[in-house]
Amino acid sequence: MDKTLFDDLVQSLKEAKAITNGQAQPSRRIVLEAEDVRQVREHTGLSQQDFARLMRVSVKTLQNWEQHRRTPTGPAAALLKIVATAPEVAIRSLHGPAKVI
Rank of each mutant, 00 (worst) to 15 (best):
D50I: 14
E35W: 01
A52M: 12
A90W: 00
D50R: 15
T20V: 05
I91W: 07
Q11Y: 04
A78D: 08
V10K: 02
E33P: 03
A24K: 06
A76R: 09
K3A: 14
R92H: 12
E15R: 07
D8K: 15
H68N: 15
R92N: 14
R92C: 09
Q49R: 13
P87H: 07
A52G: 06
E33M: 05
H68D: 15
R38Q: 10
G22I: 00
D36H: 04
Q39M: 13
R38K: 12
G45S: 10
I82S: 11
L9Y: 07
A76P: 02
L9Q: 09
K81Y: 05
V59L: 06
V100P: 05
P75K: 11
I30R: 03
Q67N: 15
Q11E: 11
V83I: 15
T4Q: 07
K3H: 09
A77R: 01
I101Y: 14
E88Y: 12
V10W: 03
A90T: 11
S93W: 11
D36Q: 03
T44P: 01
R38D: 11
E35S: 09
V89T: 15
L9F: 07
T85G: 10
T4P: 01
L46Y: 13
E33R: 08
R92T: 14
V100Y: 13
D50C: 05
